[in-house]
Design a protein around this nucleic acid. Structure first.
Lengths: 158, 158
DNA sequence: GTTACTAATTAGCTTAGCTAACTATCACTA
DNA sequence: TAGTGATAGTTAGCTAAGCTAATTAGTAAC
């Protein structure tokens, strides 16, 4: 199937979006100091909390683009701090399920609230058209990332 | 001075933008494997290359939100790989200026081209309104990040 | 039931982060 | 102009985070 070719215009747009995302997150990262957690632990905790149900260690490692032993140690640290728990999977005894504790959820939510608040503050000064553009962009970017990830998964399976 | 209050609507928008940026960069990060550099070194190199002229080690450390000794060792690694050079500052002998070599520039550009291409590919399928929304969003986000950073700098100086 | 595969951990290494301490230089001032 | 304090960078030495290889335990297929 002939996939659409990216034109120069798209390259430039992609470049600016990429740069904007980097600068946005680099700025918001400053808010994370208050959590008392390192960046890798905080990121892993966020996947655990926002994943909804319990997560396996392997899923977590894949999500964080890290090898299993690294994730074992990150989870060890989070568990030692009382932020997550391990429990055996009833269906497959090889698997350990990881779940956030109330303390872990609270810590993450507080940290994320600081990030979101820092970003929401200047948004209040924007006019409706610009907010609409940002809202639409957020939806589009989520779709791009999700679809592209799915396409990559299909591609690697062939 | 009464700063504009963030309304619930802004919180929700900020939340979605934040999440979109995270997922976008998490996805694009997969393209970095081909560079052969670790994430911290790659990020430092990108600041050096896109900073334009030479950069001091302290500026680099601040940009990467890292302490000076950490940046010293990152630069050592990049220098050992022939990607950057150190040179003394003519005006202030305490300062070392760091500059990307042609090899460093080429390596970074190739890596960034992969990221941008991966993002540009699905953009080709979007209609003009959506592209316009993304383009506007990129500009707005850059402005937000830049202004907020400046505001924080002012705040800490008072 | 033996064989192959999979999930997680352990062991042991390199890199990345930090603070504390040190060197060299600058800037100021008495 | 010698002295004092501040600043830029490095070194030393620690913990945390990344990796591969090897181990343990369990599943699945035959």
């Amino acid at each position: 199937m002939p996939r659409a070719r990216a034109r120069p215009h798209d390259q430039a747009l992609a470049d600016r979006l990429h740069s904007a995302a980097i600068h946005l997150l680099r700025w918001l990262r400053r808010e994370d100091a208050g959590t008392g957690l390192s960046a890798p632990r905080l990121s892993a905790l966020s996947v655990i909390v926002f994943g909804g149900g319990p997560v396996t260690l392997g899923q977590l490692a894949a999500a964080e683009q890290v090898r299993a032993p690294t994730m074992t140690r990150l989870v060890n640290g989070l568990e030692a701090d009382g932020l997550v728990t391990r429990e055996p999977d009833a269906a497959d005894a090889r698997v350990t399920l990881i779940r956030a504790t109330a303390k872990g959820r609270a810590l993450l939510e507080a940290g994320r609230a600081r990030r979101v608040a820092a970003l929401a503050r200047p948004l209040a000064a924007l006019d409706p058209q610009d907010r609409a553009a940002l809202a639409r962009a957020a939806v589009l970017i989520e779709e791009l990332a999700t679809q592209a990830r799915a396409a990559a998964a299909r591609g690697s399976a062939e």
